[in-house]
Each structure stands twice: as C-alpha cells, then as structure tokens.
C-alpha cells in the first residue's frame, strides 16, 4: 500500500521535532528512514502509526487519512515494531503473537482460537514457529525481535513500521532479520542507523536532519558520500562492491 506523508509537522513545548515532512512510500517497497540521533525518526514513525496526531499536515495510507480512521481500523492496516519491546508478564510466544489479533477481535473475551490461522502464518513468516511454547522471558534478543515481528504480522497490516529493529542484534541476526522483512509482501518503513545495512536492504531512502527531509528517493541516488558528509559529518566511500554484489558504505577517519 502506498503511504503519503504531506507537510507533516509535530511540536512539543514550542520546539519543532518534525518539520514539514513530505514523502511518498511506494507500495510493496522497503523504505529506509535514516538520519542522526534526534533527527525525528521515531516521532515521524509514531505519527505515521497514528500514535501521535500531527500538528500540521496529514498521513494517508492508500488514500485514507490515518488520523481520521478509528484506532482499531488503523491497527489492522498499520503495525509498528518498537525499538525495544519489554514486559514483566509471563507470556508464551504464542500469546505474544496473539496480541496482534486484538484489533480484529470484539470487545468481549470470546473464542480463544480466533485468528489461529493468521497467527500460525505470522509465526511461520518470521520463522519463529519452532518457539510457540517458549516463554517470552527466556528468549534471546534476536528471538524477541522476531516474535514481535510475528505479532505485528498477525495484525495483517498493509504497512509495517520498524523503529531501529536491529539495534540490539548481532550482525548475523541483523542480516537475517532484514532479509526476512524484505521478503514480506507488505510495505515496510524502517528507521535504521546502520547505513551499510540500509544500503544493502532498502529500495528507497528518506533522510532526516533536525526534523526535515534533506533527501529522498532510490537508494542508489540518495546514498552518496556527499549526503553522508552533510548529514552525519563523517567521511565515507560509497561504492558498488562487485564481490558482495551490492552498494557498500565504508567510513574513514
């Protein structure tokens, strides 16, 4: 599904965190949201997810205003994976993934097997179907992130928003996770810190600095050493690595 962000602004205490952001996410693509710490990535994702109401502008998913639809309706179309999901409750993996069915369920506690098929599918897609009976508290960081992905997929969203999903993962789990997400048939927007991973997995990029979009478009056009110098103040070489078969970003001192 197509996501249209039009002139979105969000302020807190008179400070503008997200400023006149306009961007389009093409259906079915993996779009990376990059920018330094405090550039407004998380806030923008929360606005797109409908958790924050923008002070200016609008967000449309397939033409429908995200902030005009009901919360439940929205949750069946847009799912968010937070940076660091934590709970003190003693839940099984299956119970965590079943939380994703809440927006599809009625008010009253009903049949416990509602959406069992979608839950199974979500577990398979994020490759945690072997963990169903494990308890959340016993999972590793990589497993937890995949279980949260399965929870988000159980919502059957058309748009999946990921907030720095690979932050707490080791290199191999980072690659596995992003590869899994890329192969999904949903539109994905992910805030990412690792430019090399972003270059490898994203189709499009949106670059934020101080709440403003400074560049956007296809990865090959946006990910340049000039952009990185301007936004991050770091020297890099960005080139197509023929051995790896992809764009790579290497930093220098």
């Amino acid at each position: 599904m197509r996501v249209d962000v039009r002139g979105v602004g969000w302020d807190v205490d008179g400070r503008t965190i997200v400023d006149e952001v306009t961007a389009t996410v093409r259906p079915g693509t993996f779009t990376g949201l990059i920018g330094p710490n405090g550039s407004g990535k998380t806030t923008l994702l929360h606005v797109v997810a409908g958790l924050l109401a923008p002070d200016r502008g609008s967000v449309r998913v397939d033409g429908d205003d995200v902030h005009a639809m009901g919360a439940r309706d929205r949750a069946t179309r847009v799912a968010l994976l937070e940076q660091h999901a934590s709970t003190t409750l003693d839940l099984t993996v299956r119970q965590v993934v079943e939380l994703g069915r809440i927006p599809h369920r009625g008010r009253w506690p009903g049949r416990s097997d509602e959406g069992a098929e979608q839950v199974d599918r979500a577990l398979r897609l994020s490759r945690v179907d072997g963990l169903v009976d494990r308890r959340w508290q016993t999972l590793s960081g990589g497993e937890r992130q995949r279980v949260q992905l399965a929870r988000a997929l159980a919502q059957e969203p058309q748009v999946l928003l990921l907030d720095e999903p690979t932050n707490h993962l080791d290199l191999s789990h980072q690659i596995d996770f992003l590869a899994t997400v890329r192969d999904l048939e949903v539109t994905v927007v992910a805030a990412l810190h690792d430019l090399d991973l972003a270059a490898a997995f994203c189709d499009d990029l949106v670059v934020l600095r101080q709440g403003r979009v400074v560049a956007s478009g296809a990865v090959a056009d946006v990910m340049t050493s000039g952009m990185i110098r301007e936004v991050y103040d770091v020297s890099t070489s960005v080139r197509h690595d023929h051995d790896a078969g992809r764009l790579t970003v290497t930093w220098h001192r």
Binding site: A49, G50, A71, T76, L80, A85, S86, T87, R107
Partner: peptide
C-alpha cells in the same frame, strides 16, 4: 471485562497498546 483484550494490549507498554488499536 469489556476492556479485557484492551488491557492485554498494554502488556508491552502504551505505545504498543496504541499500535494495537487501543
């Protein structure tokens, strides 16, 4: 009781509950 699945949605905090349509 009519809030029971809504309360379940708070398991991972408020932002998570919000993204589950609460």
């Amino acid at each position: 009781l009519s809030f029971s699945s809504t309360l379940d949605a708070f398991a991972f905090g408020e932002a998570a509950a919000g993204s589950l349509g609460v």
